[in-house]
Write a protein that binds this DNA or RNA. Structure first.
Lengths: 310, 310
DNA sequence: ATCAATCATGCACCTATTGTGCAGGGTAAT
DNA sequence: ATTACCCTGCACAATAGGTGCATGATTGAT
């Protein structure tokens, strides 16, 4: 119910460029440009200034964007309360998440919702955590399952979101089958410190997890290779190119010549998996139900592990 | 920036019928109907139910409308703060008021604004107090100058508005020039209690002022005639049909055979003239400036009276 | 009981908002 | 200087959203 042009402005405040805003919102750059111009006209405010070859928010623009956070939250909250009060049915629901989460948590959620709410059209978008937040701002999705990250752009207590912890997913090490430690059940990071490591590209979510794990024990690992998909990681390890970290949730699915070991010792790196929604919307019955389903699934995974560990 | 369809819903909540909503918002009934249907669709809520030959808000609808009050206020507040912070210029400004106020207070205000803000397009709508509030809700006007009234629909502390007292305008009596009291300067209501009275139609703002004045002294006046315009009141009095009340602000403008007397005694009826704006918008620089101008004019009127009284 | 009045809504039609795609112009980087 | 990048203006197209009239349903009056 908040004017779409204001949403566009908020997305622009995140992206900084018209082009990126267009990509994120699904409009063309011309449309974004025209929308923002129109917004300035109806409000009688100058929100943008030319800045080099791009445009930049004015002080007024930044003020408006910052001030609109509580407005959005209040609307979400009102909408949620009305849905709750009226026992109404929602007809569209956008979910976002990264690959493993999408597979392990979002897919079952979507399936369950499809059966409990036949009228609901569920849409799942695979996207990395940062983009998930962007998509939440752009109102392209309503709920995201992501790896918690303390990036410089989105904090845990960002006024635009509310986050709920789903589960802590520990990282295992994967090593080649012919590695000296391959017959072990567990290993410490220190034991593997001098190995050639395979990691994700700098800037990705996993890279920061990776470096955090090693700075915790005061070691700078030697990075031999970079891979994007877990499947590639595993293949690299299987080819004997080095060792790597693999989240417990990511399946090893019959890989040749790769062994997975639990990490013990002081540094036990984990990734925290959280659900994020726009602030205010958490009271919505659909969100509540979804969070419940996610939590149940997360607990199922956790208890399966406990049995596994016995 | 709040979706126009939500505004329409709010207006409907006031009016109760699609037709009245259309009239107030300036749309056609079909458009209002379509808008509300579309609103229900995008929100996935049932807001209206058939009720006889009309429609009625559902519980969800009422909930949503009530909950949207703070949302609107917050937006107005944000908008005002941004205008203030950015020193921006507004380009449209809608004013509303009833006849005397429009003439005595709104006209000078509009004139002043036209000179201080050449870019601003000022629009004045003449409407009675109740309709002014409706027009504020419908966002057709931004500021209204009205007679304070404790009607059943709009209270002084309505969450949708903020009101500022401009001046208290005393009511005088007007009597025919050949009346026994015509040579006096003042009179009490009691002295005139048995006269035939001329008043406004039941339901109008002035009618309630009129009755309030007489219930204060415990008298039920005999109502001889009803008139809408002050000019008609005056003409009736001039024709010797009875006596009437006339606000000090309303000019007697060379009427034949009519004398105006100040009212003294226990009951000194006055009408309180206030400015009303949508809640939150009062911090806007344009509103602030306008209220200042109105206040200056009101004080000018008051001091002119003081001189007059000497 | 009939008739008229009152309301909402569906439909055909139209307008104008709002979108796209491409060309152009200004600015920074190589 | 050349290239690459980003925003914007323009012609054009889609479509959301408007009006007016006819229709159907319901209430109140004659």
């Amino acid at each position: 119910m908040i004017d779409a042009r204001l949403i566009t402005l908020r997305v622009f405040a995140r992206c900084g460029t018209i082009g990126a805003t267009a990509e994120l919102t699904g409009y063309s750059p011309s449309a974004v440009s025209a929308q923002l111009r129109e917004l300035q006209r109806v409000l009688g405010m100058q929100l943008l200034t030319k800045d080099g070859r791009g445009v930049r928010l004015t002080a007024t623009g930044r003020f408006l964007v910052a001030g609109s956070d509580p407005l959005i939250a209040q609307w979400e909250s009102l909408r949620a309360a009305a849905m709750e009060a009226g026992d109404q049915v929602q007809l569209h629901f956008g979910l976002g998440g990264f690959s493993t989460a999408a597979a392990q948590l979002l897919a079952p959620l979507a399936a369950t919702l499809r059966s409990t709410r036949p009228l609901l059209e569920v849409q799942v978008l695979e996207a990395d955590p940062a983009r998930c937040f962007d998509l939440l701002i752009a109102e392209r999705i309503d709920l995201a399952v992501i790896v918690a990250m303390q990036s410089d752009t989105y904090g845990e207590d960002d006024p635009r979101f509310e986050q709920t912890v789903l589960l802590d997913d520990p990282l295992d090490v994967i090593i080649p089958g012919d590695h000296p430690l391959a017959s072990r059940e567990t290993a410490t990071l220190e034991e593997l410190a001098s190995e050639p490591w395979i990691t994700a590209g700098a800037g990705s979510t996993y890279h920061s997890l990776f470096t955090a794990a090693f700075t915790a024990i005061g070691v700078t690992p030697r990075i031999a290779h970079e891979a994007v998909e877990w499947e590639t990681h595993i293949a690299f390890v299987g080819a004997g190119l080095g060792v790597g970290l693999l989240p417990r949730l990511a399946p090893l699915q019959g890989a040749e010549n790769v062994v997975r070991l639990r990490i013990t010792g002081k540094a036990k790196p984990t990734r925290r998996i959280v659900a994020a929604v726009r602030r205010g919307s958490i009271a919505s019955p659909l969100i509540q139900e979804s969070l419940g389903i996610l939590q149940v699934n997360a607990n199922r995974i956790l208890s399966a592990r406990l049995e596994d560990d016995l």
